[in-house]
Amino acid sequence: MKPAPFGHVRASTLDQAVETLVAEDGDAKVLAGGQSLVPLLAMRLAQPTTLVDLGGLRELDYIRDEGDHVEIGAMTRSRAVETSPLVATALPLLPAALRHVGHVTIRNRGTLGGSVAHADPAAEAPSVLRALDAEIIATGPGGRRTIAAADFFQGFLFSALEPDEILTAIRIPRQPAGTVVAVEEFARRHGDFALVAVLGAARLDPSGEIAEVRLSVAGAANTPLRADAAERLLTGQAPTPDVIAAAATAVAEATDPAADIHAPAEYRRHLAAVLTRRCLHRLFAHAERSAAA
């Protein structure tokens, strides 16, 4: 388990990084934290000619309050995002989800940008981006462009990034005050990739009806899934068990899970319903508590 030979460029500017990607014509890979890439190198499942190492680009390591958005630089470590007071207030779903990513040791090194660019449908960060309608900023030879999360994740480990583009930042809309969040994840062992995870954020209006709800599902399709149909069912309703059950069914129907050695597809679909129901119950119990307080 030793990587095949490759060249290494420790980029000192973003332009230099992009130039290298262009020069290597699709055979280079971007190295962020390395938590997914280095094992793939060691297994020789990835054999790039060159690694473009973003480790020296301090300018990509930031969490910035931009009023109605929070912008997070791609090289910000997951652990820094998870423990940021700004993120806790403005985007509570993000730290709640990141706590399920592997273990602290992984999150110390793994970056938010790396996780999103890897586009693993079972990973938590991509699902948060889907739930919160985030935008991904990519920088390539033609400059910067912004990609909606809904368009970014295109398949299993497959995103809208071009081979000569670098994911440089993520912009996430600030959540309104009073938003409560819940993450229900089912993994075989603590820290494993989710078989299925359901992520939810919601607000109740003063009458106790659901003013806004955002739901996404990891591990239930070849991309992170936004549960639009369930959200529509829930919005404007009182969170009764019947409404919640209907939403859970809607989520399950929207899934298109794959089978693997850990679970058949049908089991994952079933889990999506169970976890949705649990997530929503928790969410609205929180919401009622916070409304009462």
Partner: peptide, 11 residues
């Protein structure tokens, strides 16, 4: 070790 699941302290 992602496929062959040796229990951790949490299990």
């Amino acid at each position: 070790f992602m496929d062959y699941l040796i229990p951790t302290a949490s299990e």
